[in-house]
Structures are given as C-alpha cells and as structure tokens.
Amino acid sequence: MLWIDCPWCGARPESEFRYGGEAHIARPDPATTDDAGWGDYLFMRSNPKGVHAERWMHREGCRRWFNALRDTVSNDVLTIYPMGTPRPDAPGDEAEGG
C-alpha cells in the first residue's frame, strides 16, 4: 500500500485516497480540435515506466485534490504539489516510457 503525504492531513495510507489518473492533461477547444486531437486528449496517456505526474484526492479525509510525482517502478511518492501549478522537477526525472 502506498503511503501518501496529504498536504493538509499529513501522511495517510493509500486506502483513504482516490486516484485521479495522469495530471496536466489540458482540455482542448472542441470547436477547433480535429478527431485525432480529441482522441489524443480523451484516451492517449503517457503511462511512463518511471516518474509519473498524477492526481489524488483525500477521499476519507479533507476531500481535497492535489498532484503528486510518483515513480511507477518503485512506487515511491517523490513530490506533492498543488493542482494548477506546473510539474516540478523530481530527482531522476527521466521517464523511460512515452
């Protein structure tokens, strides 16, 4: 089980959180986006073997969302940062996957 450091409640077990998938996926304007661009937004994911930027919500605590960088091989949560801020650098931040 992951141990996640909620910025408001402190370190809590993974079972208290809801996972929100990949972070920083910006919604394009549907009026000016073609099918390929829309499909890319809806379905394509980077799914890296390495550092992944992702969203979490402390469902059984403060119920607030935040972002995290996590290593998908070691499962170490590397950095916690607020939603809406750019992805920070993480130690060894070189994703192997796409």
Binding site: S15, G21, T72, N75
Partner: peptide
Amino acid sequence: PPNSYSQRGG
C-alpha cells in the same frame, strides 16, 4: 488503481 510497473499491489 494507480498505474504502476512494480508487479506488486496493496
């Protein structure tokens, strides 16, 4: 739920 390549779960 979290995506992972670690071959272990919670």
